[in-house]
Write a protein that binds this DNA or RNA. Structure first.
Lengths: 348, 348
DNA sequence: ATCGGAGGCTATACCGGTTTAGGTGAGTCC
DNA sequence: GGACTCACCTAAACCGGTATAGCCTCCGAT
């Protein structure tokens, strides 16, 4: 067994090159005050020795973590179905890796643990900045991040005044396009299976639904609030379809619920889209392969992650990046939406 | 604006308590050689000052990162549908958070970037140990981890001799149960839509399928290899159903493909399960809400993550945890499997 | 000839912990 | 009463980088 050779330090490089530690540091960081020959010699020796800077030592002396923090709050059940985060994270990584930064991920079951997770991340100085996703009304995390004095970026504009840059994607447009599409197809009774009202995107999508309905001169009286879980989608669909004046179209606030809703409708013998039109939200690729393929609203989660990461890095670097607006979510009509069925003969 | 007060260091605590830095360190780490009164005083002062140890300083001096690394290799397309990792990560976190450890996540597009990611994680000493998931034949990561001299845990037993503890879940049992179930229902032409052969679980599930078929005295001639993507599931299903002697049941190696396969079958007018039975793998909760609800193999990804994390932590602590076998994956019959349709009249 | 200044470099403090070698004083043993 | 032990504590080195003050040396300007 070969002896465990300790990795070379900057002192080894300095000694071998016959200069001081400080000069090595200067040379390696490309700072002025080092003659070209000396610089080359130092670089050469460093290469020769296979020297790699110790991120830990650097972290301690420059007081940086070289990492960003993401806290995901999801009850364990819902997390499996949600297509958003995996894509979002892939986008974040695309930006972080080349910048030599890492992503520290925390997955917590509830909002209490969430705040604790942010506190811990910052207390340990594990990260230089944090993502704040899934904004809620009166979101305590804004205040917490301010109090902890940690750079942050919010996904979407918070309601309360926030000192942090926001990277937003207009999801209203997608919902409105979905409703308009359904209205054009002749639907009059359109329901919405909404996300939790305490979440900004939950209530914003609902509001967009209501506005679009109002513009079409239709009542937005069929709205069910849920927790974004597939099971909720099935339950909400059951409740919506039970009464005699059931909707002919349902706009779901995410794909897993739409898929479950589709399943429920089919189970009761309804034909989708002939008897009932259905739209989802977030464009998981599996929806494309259902029968009927799910009409949905595509949100470019990966691009969102990349931009948010970039903004956060600039924010940490001391710039003050303004708010960013991403291209709005696009409605993608597929097969689960069709002209409204002929209305049943009026009763009386 | 309040002046940015620097956080207290161990020196501040020492001074205020009238002792040396070293003694404070001893007291706070509960080491012997500190009188009870002094210890209490130090603890009190630390509390009073709101002192929090600097993880960075600790990391530098004890040469630990207090973090574990997970590298996920997924082409951006597939990642959205796969229910495994989100659950797995949630399980890992459940174990790490109480242990004061963090998870550093890397998401990379291909195997080349994967090796680079491991190297980088270790070169930067960002992590004290790594998870090796999605084992492949002749997996280069085993050798890399050994070379990098970093503790690791593998999900499943690698084929090549490995110095690392393995945490395994027998997925053969689930596949076999699925096949047995189909055979009992009278199916004779059963196909398998397999994962990539280069992946251990891909080929192992395929092998389990073949073995189960052999035991039932049936030919395992209908196997299509794929890349685990939903689109692959649809394509494979199309190819399987085209010939005249099409299968009456298909065992898919994961849920997204099964869902896409279900969609394709329905699209061609086949009734599932009456004309075609279908089983998935990995038990995403959305499958439960499809119509018909997807029969699948449940794998307890969260439990797997928790155990793997625990094993890795023990491994880092210098113990030599043996291999662990988790309860085997269970077949969960739901609605997408039914008795085989009566065979068509033989031709000639 | 003298001074000023810039370029190139060294020495050293510093980040905030942990760890080790040693020092003190009280009690014990013979 | 001297040596020894032990509990408790301090001082200082150390982890591996970065940052800063200051020291030469050489050059051109006066």
């Amino acid at each position: 067994m070969p002896a465990e050779r300790p990795r070379p330090t900057i002192a080894d490089v300095a000694e071998r090159a016959g200069v001081s530690k400080g000069l090595v540091s200067f040379a390696l960081n490309g700072r002025p005050g080092v003659s070209p020959q000396t610089r080359d010699r130092i670089l050469e020796v460093a290469r020769e020795l296979g020297w790699q800077p110790s991120l830990r030592a650097r972290a301690l002396s420059v007081n940086r973590a070289f990492a960003l923090g993401l806290v995901i709050t999801r009850d364990p059940e819902i997390i499996t179905g949600d297509p958003f985060y995996p894509s979002f994270i892939a986008g974040v990584e695309r930006e972080l890796a080349p910048a030599g930064q890492a992503l520290v991920l925390s997955v917590v079951p509830d909002e209490e643990a969430e705040l604790a997770a942010y506190r811990k991340l910052v207390a340990d100085r594990r990260v230089d900045g944090v993502f704040i996703t899934d904004l809620r009304h009166d979101d305590a995390r804004i205040e917490l991040a301010r109090e902890l004095n940690v750079p942050a970026v919010t996904l979407g504009h918070p309601e309360t005044p926030s000192p942090f840059p926001a990277v937003s994607m207009d999801d209203r447009a997608g919902i409105e396009a979905a409703v308009d599409h359904l209205v054009r197809l002749g639907h009059r009774r359109i329901a919405h299976v909404a996300g939790p009202a305490r979440m900004l995107h939950g209530s914003r999508r609902r509001r967009a639904f209501e506005d679009a309905m109002a513009r079409a001169g239709l009542p937005a009286d069929l709205v069910v609030e849920t927790d974004f879980r597939a099971a909720d989608g099935a339950r909400a669909t059951r409740d919506l379809l039970a009464p005699p004046d059931a909707p002919t179209a349902i706009v779901y606030a995410n794909d897993p619920m739409a898929i479950a809703g589709l399943g429920f409708a089919q189970r009761t013998g309804l034909r989708v889209p002939d008897d009932l039109s259905i739209t989802g939200f977030d464009g998981s690729d599996v929806g494309e392969h259902l029968f009927p393929a799910l009409s949905t609203v595509a949100t470019e989660a990966a691009g969102w992650g990349a931009v948010a990461a970039r903004v956060l890095l600039r924010s940490i670097a001391g710039e003050e990046p303004g708010d960013t607006d991403l291209p709005p979510a696009r409605f993608v009509p597929r097969e689960s939406t069709a002209p409204a069925p002929p209305s049943p003969p009026a009763n009386g």
